[in-house]
Each structure stands twice: as structure tokens, then as C-alpha cells.
Design a protein around this nucleic acid. Structure first.
Lengths: 136, 136
DNA sequence: GTGTTTGCAAAGTGTTTGCAATTTA
DNA sequence: TAAATTGCAAACACTTTGCAAACAC
């Protein structure tokens, strides 16, 4: 995704174009490959590339991107949020030893039948995480 | 589950019987109903019942119970671990508005086909969480 | 008696907040 | 110029740690 495309995504989401947001979207979306990142990780990467940005802004931006549908949060770890650039329907495999998080295409796991909900409730998201580890 | 049964569970797990552990197992396992609790919650309950116990001991005990297979951890919330007294295979529904966590029997959702793993890896657990919220 | 468990308070981790200064549109 | 965004540091919520005293076996 090129910079122009990234800009238009942000503008469509009603977000102002700032240096920091462009830098983050470059890190996250430049090569189309899905990425799983934590705030700290992105912050370090940005710093390495000489982009000046506070950690608070990283959090701020990641949340705004999430609200805009550009990212998806993944909870695999207590006390640590992962952000996934792949926002299409899919699942995850999480290696509890290495911390590595891998995408699994939706549909490759079989079907899910939803339970009945109260009329005023809706399904926000379905999280399916396969936790693996080294055989003991 | 009566106190004798709770004791034998702990002893089988190689855990010494202490007042605090008995108090917690009473809170968690006395009526057979599945419970979803956080450390803070159990701590408050214990205090209400006049059981003297530090928060550190609650964490300590919950983790030992988990390691012993008496509890299962559930990650639905960043920065907050839930413990589930239902350790049999099942899934969860999580209401993002109220924080309420509900069990869903395994098998009621359809089948899951596992991806192939490296020879030295095994599946530790499968977490399936259906996140619901109020329709907007 | 020996080794485990407890309690306390302090430290740690990841995240959020308040607010003045800066920047965008 | 008005409104949004940033950076900083302080505050936060939850969890873990270190160590002496208490306890189980």
C-alpha cells in the first residue's frame, strides 16, 4: 500500500494526517504482509527509523486506527495487547513459548454456530486462538 | 464438592493444606456451579467472609490451582486474568459492555480442524471467545 | 526440624490521563 | 483561527517479587 492510499484511508476515517500517523501507517501497512505488533514494538521500530514519536502517541494512534477498522486487537497475553493489520475474518495460533502469533485463515477450521442472543445484543467479534507449546 | 474432596484434590496436586487454600477452594468449588472470578473478586469475597488472606496469597494460590488443573485461565480482558472453575473443554461468551463471562458447552459450536504443527509442538489449549455487546 | 507457604510492602509491567505546546485543515 | 493532535510525566490497574515470620508435615 503506498503513501497515497494510506492517506486516503486515514482521511476516510476522519483522521487528520500527521507525521506520526503517516510514519506508523508506513510501518504497518507499507508491505501488504500481515503484521502482529505491540505498542512497544512499533514504538521501538519508529525510533530506529529516526521517527520522533512518544509512546502515548503510539497508543493513541493504534487505538484510533483500530476504531477506524484499520487494525484489530488480539488478546492472547494477559497485560499486553497485540494489534493485527489483518482485519479480515481469521483466527490465530499463539506459541506460548516463543510468543509468536500466526494467522489462520477463516473457514479452514470448520464452522461456528452462534448461540442465541438477546434481541438488543450483537456479536462484536469471535476470537479463536489455538495455543501451542513445546511437547514435554 | 465437600471439604474432604477439596483436600484430596489439593493433596493429589502435591499442595499442602493451609487455611487459606481451604478457604479459597471453599469459595470456588463448594457449590458445583462453574464460577468465573478475578483475583481481586476472590480476595474481597474472602475478606467479607472474615477469612484473613493477603492478595499476594490469592494470586499465589490461584496460580497453583491452575497449574494443578483445578482452574483454567481465561483471557478476555487486557490487564486482567479470569479464572474459570470449569476446566472441561468449553468456550466462552464475553459481554464487552457488562464484563459478564458465560460458558458455552464444547461441541455446540461446530467442529474445529487443527492446522498441522511441527513435530515437537502440541496444542495446549483452544480458546474460543464470542464477544458480544449492545446493538448500536 | 525442614521445607513450604504466608503477608507485607515495594517494585514491575503495560496502559491511560491531564494539560500545555504544537500542528492541521 | 478553531479544533485536533502531540509529548511529557504522572497516575493507574493489575500482577509479581523478596524476604522474614509462621506453618505443615
Amino acid at each position: 500500500m503506498n503513501e497515497r492510499q494510506q492517506q486516503s484511508l486515514m482521511m476516510q476515517a476522519g483522521l487528520r494526517i500527521t507525521d506520526q500517523r503517516l510514519a506508523l501507517s508506513a510501518l504497518l501497512f507499507a508491505d501488504e504482509q500481515p503484521r502482529h505488533v505491540t505498542a512497544e514494538e512499533v514504538y521501538d521500530e519508529a525510533k530506529q527509523q529516526g521517527v520522533r514519536m512518544s509512546l502515548a502517541t503510539v497508543y493513541n494512534t493504534l487505538h484510533r486506527f483500530t476504531a477506524a477498522g484499520l487494525l484489530r486487537e488480539v488478546q492472547v497475553d494477559p497485560g499486553r495487547v497485540w494489534f493485527d493489520t489483518n482485519v479480515s475474518e481469521h483466527h490465530h495460533m499463539y506459541d506460548e513459548d516463543t510468543g509468536q502469533l500466526t494467522d489462520i485463515p477463516a473457514g479452514s477450521l470448520g464452522s461456528v454456530t452462534l448461540p442465541k442472543l438477546k434481541a438488543n445484543k450483537q456479536v462484536n467479534r469471535i476470537d479463536l486462538v489455538i495455543r501451542i507449546g513445546t511437547r514435554n
